[in-house]
Simulated assay, not measured.
Amino acid sequence: MQMSNTLLYTGLLCAALLTSCGGNKEEEKKDEESVSARGAVSAMKEMAEQAEELQKNGPVEAIDFRTLKELLPADADGLARKEANGEKNGAAGMVISTANAKYANDDNSETVELAIVDGGGSSMLMGLAAWSMIEVDKETENGYEKTGKMGDYKSYEKYDNANKEGEIAVLVAKRFIVTVKGRGMSMDKIKSILEDVDLSKLASLK
């Protein structure tokens, strides 16, 4: 995940939250909008509390991406790994470490991108996993998007029924984000690929 995408995502999230809190007094009287506003205020409060905690404790040095690469499975629910890479980068004292892998079947009708990111416990994490501090639950005839939990970990997932594309992400130990994006497959398979990653071992890394 590139730095520019992270900053853009953070900006869009903040803008969306501020919009939810805005509006004229007449609109705020509506029950539905009041509920939305309260949810946005709660999310912003949690983000502020986490930012304060991170500032107090200070950032943790990001894990070497080579260590993260070792957790990338050689096989993703029957799909062969085609490539794997990693990098560490950052700015203004905020450093993230990332390991990525791509998987596919023989005719590329099923493809997967898997990423393990270590935000190092810095404020960068609030942009990378901002979804962990809000609640989303949307469903249409084309698919769905929601936040929740997968086992002990906060999760975010979305799926497009028409294109058979989806993704799931989990936040591990308040610093690691594991994301699986799949094309040409069911959400059940995407989740099973996430289970191929040893999340307990990832959580134990220091």
Rank of each mutant, 00 (worst) to 15 (best):
M187F: 11
T111G: 06
K146R: 09
A92H: 11
Y159D: 01
T179P: 07
M185K: 03
V136E: 08
A101F: 05
R81D: 05
G119T: 08
E139Q: 10
I134R: 13
G182T: 01
E145M: 15
L128G: 07
A91C: 09
A76T: 00
R183K: 08
T98L: 14
V172G: 01
R175E: 10
I177M: 12
D107L: 08
V136F: 08
A101S: 07
E165A: 10
V178I: 09
K149V: 01
N142E: 10
M126D: 07
N142A: 09
T67K: 11
L71N: 00
L171H: 06
G143I: 01
I177W: 04
E139T: 00
K158H: 14
A92W: 15
R183G: 01
K154M: 04
G127L: 13
G166V: 06
L71W: 03
D152T: 03
L171C: 10
Y103F: 12
S122C: 04
V112Y: 03
V136C: 11
R66Q: 08
D160H: 14
A76R: 01
E70W: 03
Y144D: 02
M94V: 13
T147W: 12
D107S: 12
Y156F: 15
D106R: 08
A76N: 00
E87P: 01
Y153K: 15
E135R: 05
K69D: 03
D152H: 03
D106N: 07
Y159W: 13
S97Q: 10
T98R: 11
K138T: 15
K69F: 05
K102W: 08
M126N: 12
R175L: 12
E113M: 07
S97R: 04
G78D: 04
G121E: 07
I96L: 15
S109N: 15
V136L: 13
T147M: 11
G166R: 09
A80C: 00
D77W: 01
A130Y: 07
K82A: 13
K138D: 12
I134C: 14
T147A: 11
Y153D: 14
A84V: 11
E83M: 04
L79I: 01
G90W: 15
K146H: 02
V117I: 13
A162S: 12
K158N: 15
N108F: 15
A162E: 10
K146Q: 06
L125K: 09
A91W: 13
A169L: 07
A101I: 02
K146L: 05
V95R: 02
S123P: 00
M124S: 10
A84I: 04
G121D: 03
Y159G: 06
M150A: 08
V117H: 05
M94D: 10
G93V: 02
S132R: 02
I116M: 06
D152F: 04
G78K: 10
